[in-house]
């Protein structure tokens, strides 16, 4: 390496470090603020402590929103997983000419801007006479996360030997038994990984949810509403916990993704 190249690389690392500070700075700030009292004059640096974590219960609306988010996420992941499993298994068994078309449709909400997906669902629900509620939010999340789960399940299914399914059928199992006892056990890691990633996605989803939410807000929507008046310290505390949990989930998801890919 010449001196010029070494200097360039060092400079690039300096820029890179700055970028990482930019990426993590915002979240870091919220976490720091959650440990202090904030008054009109600014931050009271002497007030360090976990007092706001102890007072999380003072904000029942916030906790209700968190509960809604967890409920929506869990329902959406279960529904989307069932649907994705069915679709992927159907496409894998036998020659399906509709497969490219189906995959194109499933991937649409993933590629199109969230605002388009949100408006489409909003307009369709209104024409159907479906009131906005957590149910419409859940349907919206199913639409969004279907593609990820389908893709991950399909990758795993593609790596399975066809002979396994054929052998099972030859030995007298019907399609359902084959799926349950031969295919499903081998999909477990793919399902866990995609479920984790999908749940993280649903947990933070804001731009589609905004169009579909009714009287019961999810956490991001509630946070958005609170942002106009500024976050109170107990909101900072809750957000810090949420950040910790989602980042842990994402890391777990990424690690099991690496494993799933390695096992192929």
């Amino acid at each position: 390496m010449t001196a010029a190249e070494r200097i360039t690389i060092t400079l690039l690392w300096a820029v890179g470090a700055l970028v990482f500070v930019m990426l993590y700075g915002p979240a870091f700030m919220v976490v720091v603020l959650s440990f202090f009292d904030i008054s009109r004059d600014g931050i009271d640096w002497g007030s360090f402590g976990f007092q706001w974590y102890a007072r999380l219960g003072d904000n029942p609306q916030m906790l209700a929103a968190l509960g809604n988010t967890l409920l929506v996420g869990a329902c959406a992941v279960v529904l989307a997983t069932a649907l994705a499993l069915g679709l992927a298994y159907y496409m894998k068994t036998g020659i399906r000419r509709g497969r490219p078309l189906l995959e194109f449709v499933i991937f649409l909400p993933f590629v199109l801007p969230a605002i388009i997906t949100g408006i489409s669902l909003l307009v369709a629900f209104r024409e159907l006479g479906l009131e906005r509620s957590l149910i419409t939010v859940t349907i919206g999340h199913v639409v969004l996360i279907l593609a990820i789960i389908y893709r991950m399940v399909m990758i795993r299914l593609e790596s399975l030997e066809d002979s396994q399914i054929e052998a099972s059928l030859d030995l007298g199992a019907n399609g359902w038994q084959t799926f349950l006892h031969v295919v499903l056990p081998q999909l477990r890691s793919a399902l866990v990984t995609s479920g984790l990633l999908a749940f993280t996605l649903s947990f933070d989803e804001t731009l589609v949810t905004f169009f579909l939410v009714g009287g019961e807000p999810t956490l991001p929507i509630r946070l958005w509403a609170m942002m106009r008046v500024g976050f109170t310290p107990e909101v900072n505390a809750l957000v810090s916990i949420v950040l910790l949990v989602t980042i842990t989930l994402a890391v777990l998801g990424a690690m099991s993704l690496k494993e799933t890919m390695a096992r192929r």
């Binding site: 990426l23 915002p26 919220v30 991001p220 946070l223 950040l243 989602t246 980042i247 994402a250």
Partner: peptide
């Protein structure tokens, strides 16, 4: 950072 809440 993709997993950090967008509103936050």
């Amino acid at each position: 950072p993709l997993a950090m809440n967008y509103i936050v």
